[in-house]
Amino acid sequence: MVSRKSAVRGVRGDRIKTGHFDKILLAVNTVAITLIALICLYPYLNIVAKSFSSSFSVIAGKVNGIWPVEYTAESYQIIFRGSRFFRSTWNTVFVTVIGTLLNLMFTLFVAYAVTRPVMPGKKLIMILYIITMVFGGGLIPTYLTVINAGMRNSLWALIIPSLVSPFNVILMRNFLNGIPYEITESATIDGTDHFRMLAHIIFPLSLPSIATISIFLAVGYWNSFFDAMIYIDARTKQTLQLYLRDIMTNVMQAELSGFLDELAGSLADDSIRGAAIFCSTLPIICVYPFLQKYFVKGVTLGAVKG
């Protein structure tokens, strides 16, 4: 991506004149994109505001802006009640971190292997990968395979079945193909083996690609709900998404009696829903700014190069 500064200065640093039209266009673009961003952001901020508002004001429809009305943190008391929230968060962090690392590792291995000129059968391997992209086994065969592998009620059921994504392999492969072969050839001549090549040459050069893929993976693992729902039975192994979904569904159906549920029963559905959404998205929001530059670069990875 070319920055605005370099556009003004040109690729070689020469100053390029920008006309009135360019300035107006820039201003209009900035305003339009800002408005669109605010429109996209507003519903989220409204939900967060509801999560910090009293149930009465939420039910009465008084929370229409981005500020809480009659501030209260009761919704979060429900979410954080007991140890289930922390246990489920830990489970999700485990799946996200381990899953992302393993997935990246295997993706890099496969992509590196199929970009080696002397690798036999690499075309066949890629064809097999692409076939799995197009033709799925179906839900029941996949479920049976995972269960028969002894992964029922295990967090590994959320990691291993999706350990290598063909899409990510293709992305990584295309990026690695862009690394000049001379670099790896000279390293080979110097006596570098494949593992050192990966660690010291390929990995540092692939950081943009790796960062992009890792954020896709991390968000995917973090938000994974369906797989957790079908493979995880034990409450101690529930992920955060399952736990939050449980909370939202239970509160919506809660009766108005019982001391311990008086709190849950007295809260508006939207309050709980807002708190659940905020809790589940906060970690990703915190991490994303640090990876944004890689993400922006990475979206064009694998594009046709001249």
Partner: peptide, 9 residues
């Protein structure tokens, strides 16, 4: 709807 006590399931 009822949730279990901490430590119970």
């Amino acid at each position: 709807v009822q949730s279990f006590k901490d430590g119970e399931d």
